[in-house]
Design a protein around this nucleic acid. Structure first.
Length: 464
RNA sequence: GGCCCUAUCGUCUAAUGGUUAGGACAUCAGGUUUUCAACCUGGCAAUCGGGGUUCGACUCCCCGUGGGGUCACCA
């Protein structure tokens, strides 16, 4: 049992690609098979080494490690050439001399007749002699597959069941620009066979390619692999996921502080579910429970709200030291401020790691800048607020153990003497944070320390 | 336009002829809390339409309709 992920290095690894890779990976691992990676870089213009690296890198970050070394189509030219020559010799492929203009016109005419713009194969029966003559005359040509006429190509899609496409809807497609420049549908078939791929799991957009590849495989005498076509991932507008609504690049989600485990879990549930109510899944558990029959057929909207929720679950579940490490790139950091305490105070409030920068910024500021009226709790008078803050100030000044637990205890005790807990806690917390929403006063005091806390409370009192 | 795929709450989905159509996210209400989160409880919310088949259709069949994909000398 062997699967593969075959991206072309013409852009960053995107969400859809990740899901394809993941499902291939899960299916292979579930069945004790192998998961291969193949870089489809036959398009020399668009393929870039940097994208290849980007794809490798992100796949690894997400834990999708492939078996063997990654194959690169650009290094397999000899193999393709051999098969191409074989087809030409056997007459299952032929040279086509149609010009671009001719093809464009043909397509246009066919469309006018409300027919599918399938190439009609003008040169398919030219014959060897005439072909050679044209080549010698220097006419430009490409290599086309001689599509068998009047035949149904049928395959059993593992997700969709039987799919039948007539060869008249396929036509004589181009398989290579020349002997040294093979094209996708051809290289794909050759490689899947040569690499021993048994199951091809890929996006729905490849359904129309499948009959082409089967036909090619048949002519080449290959065993035909199993196919499974995944539905597309959609944007909020129900259209194919695009950059319009946020990023489609996996790396961007990583940069924003979505944890790899959460991304994997979320993506796995886009079009698949175990049929139980369990939703939080580690990679190992996914491998354990994965089954191709449970993949859904219809397109799934990429719902960022659910990803946020799931990421929050993972953030709250990982060890605090590990989380602190992960948060480091997003933390302002400062001498005297314990990163771990900051993370601990905010981990319940985080949907993604990058959010921590903004919501904790007040902890690092020298001078707080906020509307003084914010200090006033409900219908308290300015004097009452001042008194309350003075009591808090005194408490902080006298406290020795500034662990948040101890401070919280003392604060609560003091608050009981106040008309209401809020009348004591709210002004204090605002004086320390300058915000209407923040961590609790005890946590803040522990983080910024006694001296700074006293300074902030004093400033609040003086401002009133 | 041809061909192909597809259709359950706003979203992800469960229920493969018999359920008050279930869960999760989001949302709303309540609880807890100094605040915001987190957490707990509860509410709202769906079988695209029309025909069949059947004692009985979300489920099977047909016809519509909607959505999507594809028709490159890209992959």
């Amino acid at each position: 049992m062997r699967t593969r992920f075959a991206p072309s290095p013409t852009g960053a690894l995107h969400i859809g690609g990740l899901r394809t890779a993941l499902f291939n990976f899960l299916f292979a691992k579930k069945n004790n098979g192998e998961f291969f990676l193949r870089i489809e870089d036959t398009d020399k213009e668009r393929s870039k080494k940097e994208w290849e690296i980007e794809i490798f890198d992100n796949l690894k970050k997400l834990g999708l490690n492939w078996d063997n070394r990654a194959e690169r189509q650009s290094e397999r030219g000899e193999i393709y050439k051999r098969y191409l020559e074989k087809m030409l010799k056997e007459g299952t492929a032929y040279y086509c001399f149609c010009t671009k203009e001719e093809l464009d016109k043909e397509r246009e005419d066919l469309m006018k007749l409300e027919k599918a713009p399938i190439h009609q194969g003008k040169y398919r029966d030219l014959g060897l002699e005439n072909t050679l003559k044209k080549i010698e005359a220097g006419e430009k040509c490409v290599i086309r597959f001689k599509c068998p006429p009047n035949k149904d190509v049928v395959f059993n899609d593992l997700i969709r069941g039987e799919i039948k496409i007539h060869t008249s809807d396929v036509g004589d497609f181009v398989i290579a620009k020349d002997l040294n420049n093979p094209l996708y549908n051809f290289t794909c078939v050759v490689d899947d066979f040569e690499m021993g791929v048994t199951h091809i799991i890929r996006g729905e957009e490849h359904i129309p390619n499948t009959p082409k590849q089967i036909l090619l495989g048949e002519v080449l005498g290959f065993t035909i692999p199993e196919f499974a076509h995944l539905s597309l991932i959609l944007g909020k507008d129900k259209k194919k996921l695009s950059k319009r609504e946020g990023s489609t690049a996996v790396s961007d989600y990583l940069k924003q502080g979505y944890l790899p485990e959460a991304i994997i879990n979320f993506i796995a549930f886009l079009g698949w579910n175990p049929g139980t109510e369990k939703e939080i899944y580690s990679m190992d558990e996914l491998i354990q429970d994965f089954s191709i029959e449970k993949i859904s057929k219809s397109g799934a909207v990429f719902n960022i709200d659910k990803l946020d929720w799931m990421n929050g679950i993972y953030i709250r579940n990982i060890d605090i030291d590990e989380l602190t490490q992960k948060c480091l790139p997003y933390l302002k950091q400062k001498e005297g401020i314990d990163n771990k305490k900051v993370v601990k105070a905010y981990r319940d409030r985080l949907k993604k790691l990058s959010e921590i920068t903004e919501i904790t910024s007040y902890l690092y500021e020298e001078e707080l800048n906020y509307d003084k009226n914010l200090l006033i709790w409900k219908d308290m008078t300015v004097e009452e607020v001042k008194d309350s803050l003075k009591k808090a100030l005194q408490l902080v000044e006298n406290v020795e153990d500034i662990s948040s637990e101890n401070i919280q205890k003392q604060l609560v005790e003091e608050a009981k003497k106040a008309p209401s807990v809020g009348s004591f806690m709210w002004p204090l917390r605002v004086s320390l944070s300058g915000k209407k929403a923040s961590a609790g006063p005890a946590e803040i005091i522990e983080i910024i320390g006694k001296e700074k806390s006293i300074k902030r409370i004093n400033q609040a009192i003086n401002s009133l």
